[in-house]
Design a protein around this nucleic acid. Sequence first.
RNA 1: GCGCCUCUAGCUCAACGGCAGAGCAACGGACUCUUAAUCCGCAGGUUCUGGGUUCGAAUCCCAGGGGGCGCACCA
Length: 499
Amino acid sequence: MAHPPWSATDLRQEPVTTEEAPEPTAATVPYRFEPDASAAELAERFGELEAGTESGVTVTVAGRLMLRRVQGKLAFATLQDNSGPGADGRIQLFAPAATTPDFEGSAPALGDWIGVTGEVMTTRRGELSVRVDAWTLLAAARRAFPDKWHGLSDTDTRYRQRYVDLWVTEEARRTMLLRSRLVSLTRRWLEDRGFIEVETPVFHPIPGGGYARPFTTHHNALGTDLYLRIAPELYLKRLVVGGFPRVFEMARVFRNEGLSSRHNPEFTMLELYQAYGDYHDHMALTEELVAHLATELCGGTTITYQGRELDLAVPWRRATMTDLVDEQIGRRLDAATPTDELRAVCDEYELPWHDGDGPGMLLLEIYEKTTEAAQWQPVFVTDYPEEVSPLSRAHREVPGLVERFEAIVAGRELCNGFSELVDPDEQRTRFEAQARRRSGGDEEAMAVDEDYLRALEYGLPPTVGLGIGIDRLAMLLADAPSVRDVILFPTLRPEADPS
RNA sequence: GCGCCUCUAGCUCAACGGCAGAGCAACGGACUCUUAAUCCGCAGGUUCUGGGUUCGAAUCCCAGGGGGCGCACCA
């Protein structure tokens, strides 16, 4: 090799037709660069170096130039490479004119990516630095970076230009890193327990497994409409029928509904299914997984969310919907409560009801509007009305209810799980009830999925399933107020003119 | 979909019916130990868009657009 890897000299010396030296462009940066140290590693390794010391060690680092302090014939700069567990890695560059190549020439600009090779040293003030003995431009920033102190505050710009936000908003970087670790830890944790990760279709001929409006698309060659999945549930249970007793999927799902600080049209749902278990098993699994993640990511099971303390330590409280509603509004209501009485309660709390709503629908409505948001510490709400749970198995003791639970944390639904309905005849009856709602105008009700029924007819053993909202969980553990803070590129209206 | 708030230089923000400004960034200059370096100088605008009111509009009004928050929706 004629030049060290950081050198672009060979490229810059190509014949030029103009008298001026060419500006470095994307065409003049090297094809490859090989840093051998990061800011975090240097801090770790040379943290104890006394002020005014040269280490005798030469390293190559790379990153973006974020700050610059030119002092006549001596310049300091801050190179950021986002190394380290906090993704906040920065190292100072020390550049004396006497030894720094091209000091007076085309010095790098703020925002440029550069690679630097030089001796590790400390300044007289004791700041760990890399002396710039050689440097090369890796990418020029043609657009000005935001204010070096105030950064970006316009949320629109932050979401649309996340590639800038991630450099200037440490919080954003930290949050996204936490999310990445959350997903990684979850995978490992599940695999350690015998779950295998699978990928099921995003295109569904029949939308199912949830109660939501789907996005519709069209396949030209097949000449058929397809729906983007609203949940992977029905395919994952087919896999249990197929002989995989423990499966999970980190499923991006799509729901054609409103946007809010808690809803993005595409979001990530972890769904897992476990043969031979019931909903008690998955309540235990949920609390153990979340406590594990909190310990790994937040250093303990006591965390702060939006200024309020949350105790995620195992075990979490378990309470039936009936008991929780009773606690909140002082009435014992369940799926056997007469419809008239439930309607009267709805009226009392100014909740709209429809003629077609059965007791289960009304009870759920009352619970959600009066009780759910009032729960702060984690609680498993159990035993939902069958009417609103078309895929859940009937409660083994209480008629009209199913063995279903949701975990409510900080007033929000974190997950939803249930003992799965395994009886194909009963499932057909439930699907048909849904289909009646659907033809009655309820666009969110499910349709009859004949292939799913066929799968059940081959035999689904006792099974429990669970869906955890990964975005919600990330919000909780990252202490993020908006779901957009935990999604790298949240859904926004397309820009009219992005230039 | 409804309500409230918001939009000014690349970025962060002033000016609130009377000459569109500052800091940072950029550009020119001084400076060999800075830490958001400092200092001097220079340049930078469709005040989101279109109407209206007014002698005069960034400012007030109407309509539209982007964004935020709340409501509705999201079992």
